[in-house]
């Protein structure tokens, strides 16, 4: 897998290679991941019955909150990433026995879609560092990005004490070289709101770029992609052709980016790395929907060696050309009923 990832995120796709590795990995995970084996047995599926990677049982993200989905014993664990949530919430967990694949995958895609020039760049990170939040996969990603692709001026502007808007604005105003302003969508909105409240704006040096990720789930304020990108253009002087959205999730080792920076044309289509496949499926039957139709996204990530290769999301999307677009999140199940919302209740688990 490391060799394949080493060929880069832009290497040609290889169906045979993917299919063969995916089936091997599924077979391995079935044998060594007892929680996953229970799920497969409940679904009446075992490796001998699976002829194509598309038949590998996908694990809905909620299951990562219920059981340790890992192929190795706890003593071999080097890192656990957790989904966001309060201390009382059940949180999904991705257990890792090695960071090599995780980091190789994230660097391959991030360098291809956020730093395609191949030069070190100054990262201004609107998120806490991995030292602040060791169980955040996003913080770890930014740590790795800064370490591998950043200049010495790169800095994190969010910490346990909060964020440092004055430090960030000062640094951005005085920057002479291109900056990669990266962080959560919501943190970026805070920055833009602050600039708007002061009636001020910045023009980042030519060659700068913005990478935002995470969306607005659970936040009190949401803005549309159009509004966000327009505000970035206006307040930070970064054109839409240099704004990239990243789509990722704690349960996956790999991430997905828009090709905007590579092509110079803004797009909402996410590119799928060669070692990953994404299917858009009917939420009821789990059959693939026709191109352009909306369904839920299921990802098959060969970099997920230590957990499960197939992860079923609650994200709605559609297949467009060679990639997919995320169109939203499936609404809560309780929305149309009058019974109590399931996860609101007490200590329910």
């Amino acid at each position: 897998m490391l060799d394949w990832i080493g060929e880069g995120a832009l290497a040609p796709t290889d169906e045979e290679r993917f299919g063969s590795l995916a089936l091997d990995l599924f077979s391995y995970q079935y044998r060594h991941n007892s929680a996953y084996q229970r799920l497969c047995e409940a679904y009446g599926v075992e490796p001998g019955m699976v002829r194509s990677w598309k038949e590998i049982p996908a694990v809905p993200t909620g299951a990562f909150k219920e059981a340790r989905l890992a192929t190795f014993p706890e003593e071999q664990e080097v890192r656990t990433f957790r989904t966001s949530g309060s201390t009382t919430d059940l949180r999904g967990e991705l257990h890792l026995d090695t960071l090599d694949l995780y980091e190789a995958s994230l660097l391959a895609t991030l360098s291809a879609y956020v730093c395609p020039e191949g030069n070190p760049i100054r990262f201004a990170v609107l998120a806490p560092s991995g030292a602040e939040v060791p169980d955040s996969s996003l913080s770890h990603m930014f740590d790795v990005a800064v370490r591998a692709l950043g200049t010495p001026e790169s800095r994190f502007y969010v910490s346990a004490e909060g964020w440092d808007p004055e430090g960030l604005l000062g640094d951005l105003r005085h920057a002479q070289e291109p900056v990669a302003l990266v962080g959560t969508t919501f943190a970026l909105v805070h920055l833009l709101d602050l600039l708007a409240s002061r009636g001020s704006s910045i023009v980042l040096p030519e060659g700068s770029r913005v990478m935002e990720t995470g969306g607005f789930k659970g936040r009190s304020r949401e803005v549309s992609r159009e509004e966000l990108h327009s505000s970035i253009e206006k307040r930070l002087g970064v054109s839409r052709a240099r704004i990239v959205n990243q789509y990722g999730m704690c349960e996956l080792a790999s991430q997905f980016y828009e090709s905007t920076l590579r092509t110079g044309s803004p797009t909402a289509t996410k590119c799928v790395p060669p070692w990953v496949r994404t299917r858009v499926v009917d939420p009821g039957t789990l059959d693939e929907v026709p191109q352009g139709s909306v369904g839920i996204l299921v990802h098959y990530d060969l970099a997920n060696t230590g957990s499960v290769v197939a992860v079923q999301t609650s994200d709605l999307g559609c297949w467009v050309g060679d990639g997919f677009e995320v169109v939203g999140r499936a609404p809560d199940a309780e929305a149309r009923g009058c019974s109590v919302a399931a996860d609101l209740l007490l200590g329910a688990r």
Binding site: S34, A35, Y36, R38, L39, E41, A42, Y43, G44, V59, P60, T61, G62, A63, K65, E66, A67, L69, D282, P283, G284, T285, L286, V294, G295, I296, Q312, S314, L316, R329, A330, P331, D332, A333, A335, R336
Partner: peptide, 29 residues
């Protein structure tokens, strides 16, 4: 069901299936 509701059922089944000691009864299709 709406998409989110279908997804919820799959999610709920999977959450039950991975837990040790639970038993799941459901139609496969």
């Amino acid at each position: 069901l709406e998409a989110g509701e279908e997804a919820w059922v799959h999610d709920r089944r999977a959450r039950a299936a991975v837990r040790e000691g639970t038993k799941l009864f459901s139609p496969s299709s």
